[in-house]
Computed example of a mutant assay.
Amino acid sequence: MSQRLLMIEDDERLAQMVAQYLQASGFEVAHAGSGRAGLDRLQDAVPAIDLVILDLMLPDIDGLEVCRRIRAQPGAAGSLPVLMLTAKGDPMDRVIGLEIGADDYLPKPFEPRELLARVRALLRRRSAPAADAPASRLRFGSLEIDRDARQVRLGERVCTLTAYQFDLLLALAERAGRVLTRDQIMEAVRGRELEAFDRSIDVHVGRIRAEIEADPKNPKRILTVRGVGYVFAKQQD
């Protein structure tokens, strides 16, 4: 069965061009021209949508609010991969998108081939089987990372992470005690080197800390190594 994408974009010409390109690559593509219409499509879609391509600038509800509402949904609906399209050149617009839960971003104008590559990468991460490992679960004190279920628990509480954030946390945890640069983390998670201006790793680490740390401002699990990157602590409470 073809994977189903929803493009929330008010530029009809761009949406049509992108839809044709993605359909030629084997995807089913639905289109919504506003934020509200996109949210309604997500709620009514049968079978469910596999990924959302979301424009930042929409005529009614902006893309940031749409993303917030997607992330507020319970269960699998709330972890739906979201690729945000940004027309503005300020990297802070991209950072804000990642802070509120987008998995990736692509600035306009973009090459359709790059969009296709980003979409495929996000879908692979969502559906990838567990990595070869002696155990399906990693445990660090009260923190449990379940590869098979792609779920993180802190005690009895299920942590709310996007697919990208789960992969980032897993990459750090599998290398517990090893200091990783931002480039190494990005390569492990996304499979390509980190762009010099890209602060997405820092943003995602901040969101992960908010879920797994007792005090995100004084982290004990994911530690910052100044001037280098991050390290996941082996010994935890």
Rank of each mutant, 00 (worst) to 15 (best):
G78A: 04
K220Q: 15
L5A: 09
L80Y: 07
R137Q: 15
R157W: 09
V152T: 07
G141F: 06
P129Y: 06
T86P: 02
A233D: 14
K88P: 00
I212C: 06
Q20F: 03
R113K: 14
I222W: 09
P216Q: 04
A163Q: 12
G75K: 08
V29K: 08
A30F: 11
A19L: 03
G78K: 06
I8N: 08
L6C: 13
V205A: 03
G227L: 06
V203G: 00
A24K: 11
G155K: 07
H204W: 03
A133P: 00
L172N: 05
A24Q: 13
A171P: 03
E213I: 01
L42E: 01
R175T: 08
R71K: 05
V225P: 00
S25V: 00
S136T: 14
S25C: 09
T224S: 14
R190D: 14
V18H: 07
T181E: 11
R207D: 00
G206E: 06
L170Q: 14
R175M: 08
R192M: 11
Y230T: 09
L143A: 12
R192N: 13
L143Q: 11
D237R: 14
D183G: 05
A173W: 06
C67E: 01
L143W: 05
V225S: 09
D40V: 15
Q43A: 15
G97I: 03
E195N: 13
R4V: 13
D215F: 02
Q20Y: 00
Q23Y: 00
A77W: 03
E156F: 07
A72C: 01
V225A: 09
R69N: 02
L169M: 13
A130H: 02
K217Q: 13
T162F: 02
D10M: 04
L83H: 08
Q16A: 14
A233I: 06
D50K: 10
L83F: 11
H204V: 10
G75F: 09
M186I: 01
L123N: 08
A45W: 08
A149F: 05
R41V: 12
A121P: 04
P81N: 08
G35S: 06
R199C: 09
E156I: 08
L98I: 04
S25W: 02
L170N: 10
P129S: 03
R139M: 12
D146C: 12
L143F: 03
F140G: 11
S2G: 00
A121V: 01
R124H: 08
M17G: 11
L122E: 05
F166T: 01
D237A: 14
C67D: 01
A133V: 01
G177I: 05
L123E: 10
D183N: 15
K217T: 14
S127R: 10
D104M: 03
R209C: 11
A19R: 15
C159D: 07
V29I: 09
R207V: 02
L115I: 07
G35Q: 05
L180I: 02
M7A: 14
G101W: 02
